[in-house]
């Protein structure tokens, strides 16, 4: 599969990454190599094979609906780069 610079730009925007021109070129090249390598999988016939999301057969793991104390707000906010009035602060959001 050929990877184009436009694809790299699209994927970068999905991933919220700002790539420099140099990075764009580099990733275009490298991703093409890696994807070519990944395309090797097409040699395998997987028709009708169930995909495995979990390797161990665990199911129905639940929590009981019992309230426990939440954390102190200071603890929740202790790493916030910007906070105000007990909240995380972000740039003004315009709809």
């Amino acid at each position: 599969m050929k990877i184009t610079k436009e694809q790299v730009e699209h994927v970068a925007s999905l991933a919220r990454l700002n790539l420099s021109e140099e990075e764009k070129e580099r990733f275009t090249r490298e991703m093409e190599d890696i994807i070519a390598f990944a395309d090797k999988l097409n040699e395998l016939d997987t028709e009708g094979v169930m995909p495995t999301a979990h390797v161990i057969p665990i199911q129905n793991v639940f929590r009981e609906d019992v309230i426990k104390p939440s954390f102190d707000r200071e603890k929740i906010l202790q790493n916030a780069p910007a906070k105000e009035d007990g909240c995380f602060k972000v740039p003004k959001i315009v709809e």
């Binding site: 994807i35 999988l41 997987t46 995909p51 390797v55």
Partner: peptide, 14 residues
């Protein structure tokens, strides 16, 4: 083509 295929191959490897 990629993610699902890889998970299928995962089944085969297992």
């Amino acid at each position: 083509a990629y993610y699902k295929k890889a998970q299928q191959v995962r089944t085969l490897i297992k």
